[in-house]
Design a binder for these strands. Structure first.
Lengths: 283, 283
DNA sequence: TATTATTACGTTAGGCGTAAAGATT
DNA sequence: AATCTTTACGCCTAACGTAATAATA
């Protein structure tokens, strides 16, 4: 039976050209390499080298053996990687969401209901989410609308309502409701990593410019220091509303069906059916 | 690094179901199998088994690992086989001929000019011969006519002239020459393994029946005891002509271009160019 | 003379088997 | 009681390194 460690020495020799160099790069002694090459010839049952007194090199058969050795070594490495990846998939719950807010509720529920499992979440495009849930590549998906697809279950998860934060001194601050059409043309501050909201705003307010901030702190500073519009939702229960961040701003709901979304949980494995209910209960 | 011997134990366990049975079929002790399975988990870096106090079985990841192990073991075995086959091809000269006679001259020449090389010869169809020489699958080919094909060299080798052996009492025995048309309808004895001659006779003498004999001795006995026609050629220098075999028969040449063939030697490797000349010299 | 492959030899570490323990059916 | 897995322990092989040899550039 072939030995992968010996094959590794063989390809190292093919790369290095001499037994000494091979021994050096593998941190072994020359005699060890000599012995291994002799042993490989026994294992293959054929001569692999042409030897002079002071020189040894691969013959044609030896070169062919090296080809196969490279393949076997690569396959062996790949097998380990693949088995580890398989095991990881088996022990991780992968979640792909169209927006961050539902994850704030879903992830704690998953952690407590599936202890020991690793939970991995990503923000993605809606089409990608559906495809990955359907293919089984990802266990859970969150979309801002219901879908019907055989093999994929879909249950309502949470609602989220978008509001705009208008500076108090702005003439729109007195309004009780606003529409995208009325906001269109005003420039807005946006946080990055807000999923499909970004796309929705650009679509509904094509005349506006959006200043996307990657850093949370810088975003807050700009909200305080500027008169630019920004957004919030009813699921956002951070400091903004309570403390100084929105102190001098009016939070005005946006009346548009697209601004009031109902997130839906997608899954193929029925064990996840209950987590949607648990999420709604914790809301 | 994975160890193929350990992987072999893993697939044996997958096949047997218990460590004890595995140890038994592999002629090892149970503790050895236990240790190997533990070591395999270290090598893969993941858990491969679900263990109770008295029972161990593959988990999902383990089954996946077994899949890869089977693949790697098969590939390793295949690699050895392929390398040996490559080495054999490297040290054997493969000859495919359309008829046996030219081999009687060619094979001794090859043996003396390429000592140490194994020589393997087969009788084949003309199309197969050309294809195998062109593909490099076979080093030398012998056809009864010249061919022109890029990459394939073709040189004249030997001539062979077909004669018919007619019983002395037969009315055709007085003729100096005969044609296939005149022979057509008479039943003939044939030896098997005569290559393209068999096909030629059937084509030129469609009204005749051919009694093909596998055994040389039985063939000779039938020649002596029957009045059936048979064939010989000028390259056939066995006992027939001298001794009793053809004592009471007349050997009459067949006048037809197809009955006077010039064998041609086909090859891709130029080292074989000289052997044709040597064959002609020895004729 | 420096480099390289191979052989000889002593040492060590890893792998195997025996024995025993713990647990289940 | 029988079967199975795992641990503990001792032995032995086989693989390694050092040193020496031989040959080449």
């Amino acid at each position: 039976m072939l030995n992968l460690l010996e094959l590794e020495q063989l390809v190292a020799f093919a790369d290095q050209g001499t037994l000494s160099k091979t021994a050096e790069v593998l941190h072994l002694s020359q005699p060890t390499i000599t012995r291994t090459m002799q042993h490989l010839e026994e294992e293959f049952g054929v001569s692999l080298f042409s030897r002079s007194k002071n020189k040894i090199q691969l013959n044609e058969t030896g070169k062919k053996a090296v080809e196969y050795a490279r393949g076997l070594l690569a396959d062996a490495q790949e097998a380990v990687v693949q088995v580890q990846a398989f095991d990881k998939r088996l022990h991780t719950i992968t979640v792909q969401s169209c927006a961050p807010a539902p994850l704030w509720f879903l992830l704690p529920v998953l952690s407590s209901e599936f202890p020991g499992q690793t939970i991995s979440s990503t923000l993605s495009e809606e089409t990608e989410i559906l495809q990955k849930v359907a293919s089984g590549e990802c266990a859970l998906g969150i979309l801002p609308w219901p879908v019907e697809l055989k093999g994929v279950s879909c249950v309502p998860l949470l609602e989220e309502k978008l509001s705009v934060c208008v500076p108090e001194e702005h003439h729109l601050a007195s309004r009780e409701h606003l529409t995208f059409e009325e906001l269109n043309g005003f420039n807005c501050l946006l946080l990055s990593q807000i999923g499909f909201w970004d796309k929705l705003c650009r679509e509904k307010m094509p005349a506006s410019r959006f200043l996307v901030q990657t850093d949370e702190f810088e975003f807050q500073e700009l909200v305080r220091q500027s008169a630019l519009f920004c957004f919030t939702t009813d699921l956002t229960k951070d400091i903004r509303s309570s403390k100084g961040l929105l102190a001098r701003r009016k939070v005005i709901p946006i009346t548009a069906p697209e601004a009031n979304v109902t997130y839906h949980l997608l899954f193929t494995n029925p064990v996840y059916r209950t987590v949607a209910e648990t999420c709604r209960a914790r809301r």
